[in-house]
């Protein structure tokens, strides 16, 4: 892809564990295109959050990273920490899952939204006006009063809006959003998703959205990347992947989502639990839970290959798409 804003190539991450290093992300490659929303789908232990954490450069101490993450001709993996700090919060910003714990309870919302602007040397009065504009844009009512309030005076939905404003303050080209609506009620979730979509369209920025919620993905993601036990399963246009999945795991995820607008039977469940990266099965990591698994699946790791234009899958026996 030529218009890739971020190009991740063969990314692997090892975290120190009690029994030696654990490979939580294994040989992951995908691109985030400028101006598009890329969705990273996975369950617990899939490595989706670690991948996003690596992009923003906030991996826990002792993490070993290999491969590359190309950002405007520079490799984020080998970049010096002081250069990464220059990008963080500015060109690349992050929205966290739980605004309750991501916001500092002892500082006003305005102070936190404006932090990146103050650090950039903007005069105080200008910062104040910019913060009020930002809060207004994300739909915080009465921003002239509310910018001086503290997080506990905000509801959950408003706190998430303040988080979005904080991310926007640095005029980012890429926003990483880790489960941005999981902690929110459905009516609030719908509004935050609409906000993210509107902002992305207005600003033309790219978004990497991390979530286990396929319903959210179906509504927001242009492209999706499905991960399981630290490895890639499937990449492709969101609508196509979620309506005709090529990987048996994606298929299983899709059928287990209960519908609201029609009555569906409870899905035939997958056996077992999501594989842990610390104890990743041999061959295809999904084979112990896969109804289609054959001998080769136990021994050979399937590589990503193209099955249709723009669609890649790592499966020895992919579904017809």
């Amino acid at each position: 892809m030529t218009d890739a804003l971020l190009q991740i190539e063969h990314l692997s991450i090892d975290l120190p564990g009690p029994a030696g290093p654990v490979r939580v992300v294994d040989d992951v490659s995908f691109a985030v295109a400028a101006g598009r929303t890329t969705g990273l789908i996975g369950e617990s232990g899939s490595g989706k959050t670690m991948t996003a954490t690596a992009v923003i450069g906030l991996l826990p101490a002792g993490a070993e990273v290999s491969g590359s993450m190309w950002w405007q001709g520079e490799d984020l993996v080998t970049m010096a920490e002081k250069d990464r700090r220059r990008l963080r919060g500015r060109a690349i910003a992050m929205i966290f899952q739980d605004p309750q714990s991501a916001l500092n309870p002892t500082q006003t919302i305005g102070r936190q939204v404006g932090e990146i602007l103050r650090r950039g040397g903007m005069p105080k009065q200008e910062v104040r006006q910019k913060v009020i504009d930002l809060l207004d844009r994300v739909g915080v009512p009465d921003p002239r009063t509310r910018h001086a309030q503290y997080p506990h005076q905000y509801s959950g939905g408003l706190r998430q809006r303040a988080m979005v404003a904080t991310a926007l303050a640095g005029s980012p080209q890429l926003i990483l959003a880790d489960e941005p609506t999981t902690a929110l009620d459905v009516t609030v979730q719908a509004r935050i998703l609409a906000l993210l979509r509107r902002i992305r369209e207005e600003e033309g920025m790219a978004m990497l959205l991390v979530s286990h919620d396929l319903r959210v993905m179906a509504h927001v993601a242009d492209e999706v990347v499905v991960m399981y036990a630290g490895r890639l399963c499937e990449i492709g246009p969101g609508r196509e992947v979620l309506s005709s999945p090529a990987h048996p795991y994606t298929r299983a995820l899709v059928v287990s989502v209960p519908a609201v607008r029609s009555r569906t039977a409870i899905a035939e469940p997958l056996p077992g639990s999501p594989a842990s990266p610390a104890d990743r099965p041999s061959g295809c990591p999904f084979h112990p839970r896969c109804a289609k698994a054959r001998a080769v699946c136990r021994t050979e790791v399937p590589q990503m290959r193209q099955v249709a234009p723009g669609r890649q899958v790592a499966c020895h026996f992919p579904e017809e798409t």
Binding site: H219, L242, A259
Partner: peptide, 26 residues
């Protein structure tokens, strides 16, 4: 359950159902 999803009676129920996302029809 059938009545509630097919014929929600209260405006708040309708609001909840409208806000809920589905995979289909995205």
């Amino acid at each position: 359950a059938d009545d509630l999803f097919e014929r929600p009676g209260h405006p708040y129920t309708r609001k909840l159902l409208d806000a809920a996302l589905d995979l289909e029809g995205a």
